[in-house]
C-alpha cells in the first residue's frame, strides 16, 4: 500500500509516532565536518521530516544508534555490578538498503557468533524498525552496493521517497497503517539501485596456500606509507563491530563507576596489544590486509552467507589519505588473478 503524504502531514504523523518511538535519521550538523566550513552528516534523533538528509550520503552509519560509540555495561559500587538500563521507547531508523543489510552482519556478530547473545546489542536491536530511504539513481560515487549484493532489502516497515513537496510512503508493517489512513493512496514501492559507478570484483580465496601468498603481496606494503592508521574507515563502517571494555571511576569519590565499552579499530596500532606489551600486525599495511580480508574473505568463510562489506563506500569518503577500499579490493582481485595464473603456468610446466 502506498500513500502520498505532504510534509506538513508527515510531521504530524512523526509527532504521533514519537509518543512511542525515538526516530533516528541522518541529520546535518552544520560546519561540524572534518574540514573548515564543511558539514557533518550523522545519525541523530529528528523532530521533523525536514531534519532528514535524504539527498546525500551520511558520513557515519546508523550503527551507532543501537551500538553506541560509548556504552555503559555496568555501574558498580564497591561490591556489586548493576546492569545499565535503556529507554523504554521503541526505535525507528531511516536507513538505506546497504545499512539495513549491514545490520544483519552486526546481528551475526552480536547475536550469533560463539552461540551467545550480547544483551546490550539485543535489547536495542529488538526495538528497531526500519524506514527504508530510497537512494538516488546509481547511488553515490563511492557506493558499490550492487557488487556486494546489498543494494536491495525487504527488511523494512516503511519505505519513503522524498519528493519536492510530498513524501511517498509504502507501508509494509500493519502497525503503521492507521496513521496513514486519511492520506491519498498512490502506487508506490521503492526503487533500488541496480548499477553503481564503482564496481568491485571479489577475489576468490580458496586455499590457505593462496592466503599465505596474499599475505606476502607487496600491495600491502604500499599502505605502510599511505595509511595513517587513524581508524576513520572503521568508525564509519556499518559492519565494523569491534570494541574495547574498560572501567572508569567517577572522579568525585573514586569508589563508584562504570564498566563501559567503546568502539575499537583494527587499524589502530594498539588493537592487539596485550598486557605485557606483545602485539601483532605492527604495520599499517598488515592492518589494512587484516581489515580487507575480514570484509571480503574471512567473515564469509566463517558465517557462509555473505561478505561482511556491504559496499556503502563510507570508508572511501572518509579516508583523509584518499585510500579507496573499492580500489583496494580490485587491486587484490588483480593480484590474486596473477597468483592463480602463475600457479596454473607452474602446473603445466
Amino acid at each position: 500500500m502506498g500513500y502520498c503524504v505532504s510534509i506538513k502531514r508527515m510531521n504530524e504523523i512523526l509527532k504521533e509516532l514519537q509518543k512511542e518511538y525515538k526516530i533516528y535519521a541522518p541529520v546535518r550538523f552544520e560546519k561540524r565536518g572534518r574540514y573548515s566550513d564543511t558539514d557533518l552528516i550523522r545519525y541523530a534523533e529528528i523532530n521533523s521530516i525536514e531534519d532528514v538528509v535524504y539527498d546525500e550520503k551520511s558520513d557515519f552509519s546508523p550503527k551507532e544508534v543501537i551500538y553506541p560509540i560509548t556504552q555503559a555495561l555496568f555501574y558498580f559500587t564497591e561490591y556489586e555490578y548493576m546492569e545499565s538500563k535503556i529507554d523504554d521507547k521503541k526505535i525507528l531508523i531511516f536507513a538505506r538498503p546497504c545499512d539495513i543489510n549491514g545490520f544483519r552482519r552486526l546481528d551475526t556478530i552480536f547475536l550469533k557468533n560463539g552461540g551467545t547473545e550480547d544483551i546490550y546489542y539485543k535489547r536495542l536491536r529488538e526495538k528497531v524498525k526500519f524506514i527504508l530511504m530510497e537512494c538516488k539513481e546509481g547511488g553515490w560515487d563511492s557506493c558499490f552496493c550492487v557488487s556486494m549484493g546489498s543494494n536491495k532489502t525487504d527488511d523494512y516497515s516503511l519505505a519513503v521517497r522524498f519528493e519536492d513537496d510530498n513524501i511517498l510512503v509504502e507501508i509494509k508493517d500493519d502497525e503503521f497503517t492507521n496513521l496513514f489512513g486519511d492520506e491519498r493512496e498512490v502506487e508506490f514501492t521503492p526503487e533500488f539501485v541496480t548499477s553503481n559507478p564503482t564496481k568491485v570484483n571479489i577475489p576468490e580465496i580458496d586455499s590457505y596456500e593462496l592466503l599465505k601468498k596474499i599475505y606476502d603481496l607487496d600491495m600491502w606494503k604500499s599502505y605502510n606509507s599511505r595509511c595513517i592508521s587513524c581508524g576513520a574507515c572503521t568508525a564509519v563502517c556499518i559492519t565494523c563491530s569491534c570494541f574495547t571494555t574498560l572501567d572508569v571511576t567517577y572522579t568525585e569519590n573514586g569508589k563508584v563507576g562504570e564498566r563501559r565499552r567503546v568502539h575499537a579499530s583494527c587499524m589502530h596500532e594498539d588493537f592487539t596489544i596485550m598486557a605485557g606489551g606483545l602485539s601483532f600486525r605492527k604495520t599499517a599495511g598488515e592492518r589494512m590486509r587484516f581489515r580487507t580480508l575480514h570484509k571480503i574473505y574471512d567473515y564469509k568463510l566463517r558465517f557462509k552467507d555473505e561478505h561482511m562489506c556491504v559496499g556503502c563506500g563510507r570508508c572511501d569518503e572518509r579516508c583523509p589519505e584518499l585510500i579507496s577500499f573499492a580500489a583496494t579490493i580490485n587491486r587484490l582481485y588483480d593480484e590474486v588473478k596473477k597468483l592463480k595464473k602463475a600457479e596454473t603456468t607452474k602446473d603445466i610446466k
Partner: peptide, 11 residues
C-alpha cells in the same frame, strides 16, 4: 578535528 576518526572533535 582533522585526525579524529569518530567526529568527537568538531569546530
Amino acid at each position: 578535528v582533522l585526525v579524529c576518526p569518530t567526529g568527537a572533535w568538531t569546530r
